[in-house]
Design a protein around this nucleic acid. Sequence first.
DNA 1: TTAGGGTTAG
Length: 402
Amino acid sequence: MTVPRRSQLNHLKYLTSTAQSCFDAAFKNTRLTEASQFYSSLIQQCLHTRSLLDVGIVQTHMIKSGYIHLHIGNKLIDASLKCGSISYARKLFDELPNRHIVMWNSMISSYISHKKSKEGIGLYERMVLDGVYPDEYTFSCVFKAFSNLGLINEGRRAHGLSVVLGLEVSNVFVSSALVDMYAKFGRMKDARLVSNRVVDKDVVLFTALIVGYSQQGDDGEALEVFGNMINQGIKANEYTFASILITCGNLEDLTNGKLVHGLVIKSGYEPAVASQTSLLTMYARCGLIDDSLRIFKRFPNPNHITWTSLIVGLVRNGREELALTKFRKMICKSIVPNSFTLSSALQACSNLAMIDEGKQIHAMVTKFGLGRDVYAGAALVNMYGKCGSTEMARSVFDALID
DNA sequence: TTAGGGTTAG
C-alpha cells in the first residue's frame, strides 16, 4: 500500500458513503503495519485541513475495519484537539482502554488553556486515582488551574506529590509554575522557598517572582530580585521588562525606570507592545506625562490596554480634558472600552464635574454589560456624588449591592 | 506519537 495523499482522504469520504464494504474487504487484506501507516497519514491530512469532520470519518473507518490501536487512538485525540474540539477529544479519550501519559497531559493542558480549569483539575484527580503518575508536563500546567480556581489546599497537595515524585525543583517548568501559583495566592514566602531550592533558575522563574512581589505591593523586593537576576547573567525578556517597568512606576523611581528603559533599548525589546505600554505607564507614574504621550504616538495600532494606560496616566497627572479627548478618539476608532477604561474616564468627568459627559459614559457602562462591575460602579457613584446628583449616586449604589 | 511555565491599564 502506498502512502495516501490529500486525494485519498476525499476518496475515503467517497468510499465511506458509497462503497464502504468493497473498500473494507480490500483493506482487511493488508498488513497491520501498513494499516497503521495508512491511518497515520490520513490523520496527518486531518491536521492540515483542521477539520473535525475528517477526524470523524477516519475514526468511523477505523472502528468499522476493526483497527483500533492505542498508538493510532492517541493520534486521533491529538488531531481532535488540534482541530479545536476538546469535547470530541474527550469522547475518544474516554473510549480508549489504555491511555498514554502524553494524552492525559494533552487533555488536561487543553482544558486549562481553554479556561476550563475545573475540568482540567477533574481529569488530573482522576489520573492520580487511576494510578497514573503525573510527570513534569502535568505539573507545569495544573498549578495554574489551582490558582485560577482559588484551590490553595488542593494546590499544596499537588505540590506535595511533585516533591514525592522528585519533580519540584529538578524541572524549572514545574518550579516556575509553583512560584506563580504561590504568588497568585499571595504566599510570597512559599514562592521564595521553592525558588531558592532551584539550582538552574531561568528568566521565567525570576519573572514569576518579580510579578508576585510587585502585585503583593512589595516593589522594593521585586526590584531586588531583578537585580539578582541580572547579576547572575540571566537576560531579561519582553515579559520581565514589562513587569519591572511597572515596579519602577509603582515606586515612582525614575532613576531605575530610565536605567531599565536603556536596557530595553539595548536588548531590542523596545518595539514589543507590552514593553511600550509599561514604559508609558512608568513615565506617567513618575510624572513625565509628555514622555508617555511621545511613546503613545509611536504606536502604529494601539490596543485597548495601551489606550487605557494613556487615559489613566493623563487623569493621574491632572490632564483630564485631554484624557476625555483621547477616550472619545478611542471610541471613534471602535476600540471597545472595558471596566478599566470606563472607570478612568468617569474619574476624569468626576474631577471636572462634567455630569453630561458622565451620563454618556454611564450609558456605555450599561451598553457593555458592566452594570454590576464594582470598579465602574464605584466610579459612577463617585462621579454623580461629586457632580451633586446624590439621587443618581444612591440609585447606582443600590443597584450594585442588590 | 508527543505534551509544559512568566508580561502590559484601576
